[in-house]
Amino acid sequence: MNLVVPIKLVPDLVEELVIDASGARLDPDALRLKLNEFDDHAIEQAILLKEKGAGQVTVVAPDIEGVDDALFTAAAKGADRLIKLTGNWNNGVNNHALARVFANFVETLRPELILTGVQAHNDLDGAVGPQLAEHLGMPYVGYVSGVVVFDNKAQVRKEFPGGLIAEMDVVLPAVLGIQAAEKPPRYVPISKVRATMKTAKLETFPAAELETAGAPTTVRLFQPETGARATMLAGDADAVATRLVEIFREQGIL
């Protein structure tokens, strides 16, 4: 089974987000990028599938700063092939362009199953997965939290609101948008990632030309207007706890 996981990096929301002088995008110099957490789940799900049977996991990513770490970490977890797509990624890229680039390359790998994060917090033009599926003529199911593979189909668990789960059959080859792997993404110690860096090979291939059509153009970025912001309670844990007990009393909770 040939499993392919296209991944992307997104701004780390722990850092302060700074809008650049144009007012329409985040200042790239102030950004720290990290692996989209849903893609981390997609990698884990692919490795779990590999561990249940024969298979090869290939992780594909745009060649941008920080991507080597993400790829080596995937290898330390059990990914077999690491691929960087080189291109002019400097000006940022939307998901329409990314899906075209992934489709163009992934086709050459002849995958049976493509697993990718169901969404990313900076998606503004839909998720990559369903677009990739369309380009490759494959079916797509997103919000998946469990996958079993048979001969020519995947049996997946798809989440609906309210905790309802549908068990669905998907004909392979297919693209799945992973919401959560069956088990939480495994932890690998830095030492193991470092050791992997010495042995694992990063392959590079040129990305197809970026075609950004299909996404809207942001003309203005701004922080959400906040209405009545929370009344902040000052002091240490003891002082805050004392105040909260008073508030709970006033509200009839205690």
Binding site: Q119, D123, A127, P130, Q131, E134, Y143, A215
Partner: peptide
């Protein structure tokens, strides 16, 4: 922009070459 619409709109955007705005 849900577990249902998310599976459909982005596919249609690519298939029909129509722009898509999410979130």
């Amino acid at each position: 922009d849900t577990t249902m619409g998310g599976d459909v709109a982005a596919w249609l955007s690519t298939h029909l070459a129509l722009p898509l705005v999410s979130a």
